[in-house]
Nucleic acid binder design. Structure first.
Length: 255
DNA sequence: ATGGTCGGCAACCGA
C-alpha cells in the first residue's frame, strides 16, 4: 500500500501536477490540503478519469481537504468543530480495516494571537478525538499538514525560529502527545537524518534552492501500521513541475 | 536585473 500527502495550495491551480503525479506514482491514497475550492467546483470528474474516488470538503477561498483513493472510503466524516468554528480542515474515513484521517492544522499566524490559541485548541481537540474514537492497537493512519516542526532537525534555522509560530514549545508538546498516544512519525522512523523538509516559504528568495525549509507535513501511523512501513520519501522531483506548491509530496509505502 | 511569493478573487487575506 502506497500513501501520500500533499498541501496542494489550490487543487484547481495544480490539477495537472496532481493528475501527473497520480499517473506516475499510482498511490492507493492521496491526502490533499488547502484545496481552496468549494465542493460544487471540486474537479471530481478529473479524479474519476484518473481512477480515483474522491471525498472532499472545501470552502470559499481558504482551507479545504480531500482524500483520493483507489477504493471507496466508508464512514466518511468531515465535520470537526473547534470552539464553534468548523472550517474545512478534517476528513476521516475507513478502507477495509484501515482508518484514515486527513488534517490541515491551522497555521497559527503568530504566537500569542487568537489564531495561535485556536491552533493549539484545534490540536487538543484532534488529540481528544483520536483518543475517544480509536485505539493505538488498531490501524490508524493520520496524515496532513500539521504546521509544526517537531524537533531542531525539522527546520533550517532552529535557533532563529525557536519559539515562533510553527516551532513553539506548546505546539511541539502537543505533537509529542500524539506520539505518546501511539502514533509513529513514519518518515522519522526510516530517516534519522535532518535537513529533510516538506515546505519552503515562497517569501524566502530562492528558499527551495537554498533548502531553507521546514518538515511540517507528516504521515503518522499506529504501531500495527508503522511495523509494516517499508519506505518513505519526500518527492522533490514533483516540485520541478510547473507552478510548484510551497509544499511537496510526502510518500510512504506499507507492506 | 532598477524587482524580488502565491492563490483566490476582486480589495486584500492567509500562508
Amino acid at each position: 500500500m502506497k500513501v501520500a500527502t500533499f498541501n496542494v495550495n489550490s487543487i484547481r491551480a495544480r490539477l495537472p501536477i496532481v493528475l501527473g503525479w497520480l499517473k506516475q506514482e499510482a498511490p492507493d491514497i492521496l491526502f490533499l490540503q488547502e484545496t481552496k475550492v468549494q465542493d460544487k467546483d471540486f474537479p471530481i470528474d478529473s479524479m474519476k478519469e484518473a481512477g480515483y474516488h474522491a471525498v472532499f470538503r472545501g470552502q470559499k477561498s481558504y482551507n479545504g481537504v480531500a482524500i483520493l483513493s483507489r477504493s471507496q472510503l466508508a464512514d466518511v466524516k468531515t465535520r470537526f468543530p473547534v470552539e464553534d468554528v468548523d472550517e474545512a480542515r478534517f476528513i476521516s474515513g475507513r478502507t477495509g480495516d484501515i482508518n484514515v484521517i486527513n488534517v490541515y492544522v491551522p497555521q497559527g499566524f503568530e504566537v500569542d494571537s487568537d489564531k495561535f490559541r485556536f491552533k493549539l485548541a484545534w490540536l487538543e481537540q484532534l488529540l481528544k478525538h483520536i483518543a475517544d474514537h480509536y485505539h493505538p492497537s488498531a490501524r490508524l493512519l493520520m496524515a496532513g499538514d500539521f504546521n509544526v516542526a517537531f524537533t531542531e532537525m525539522d527546520l533550517f534555522d532552529p535557533e532563529g525560529l525557536r519559539g515562533g509560530v510553527g516551532f513553539h514549545p506548546d505546539e511541539r508538546a502537543l505533537l509529542q502527545r500524539f506520539f505518546d498516544w501511539g502514533l509513529v512519525d513514519i518518515f522519522r522512523k526510516h530517516i534519522p537524518e535532518g535537513n529533510e523538509y516538506t515546505f519552503w516559504d515562497y517569501r524566502i528568495p530562492n528558499g527551495f534552492k537554498r533548502n531553507m525549509g521546514w518538515r511540517i507535513d507528516y504521515i503518522l501511523g499506529t504501531a500495527p501500521l508503522a511495523e509494516r512501513s517499508r519506505s518513505v520519501w519526500i518527492d522533490k522531483k514533483a516540485r520541478a513541475m510547473s507552478r510548484p506548491s510551497d509544499h511537496t509530496f510526502l510518500v510512504a509505502e506499507f507492506e
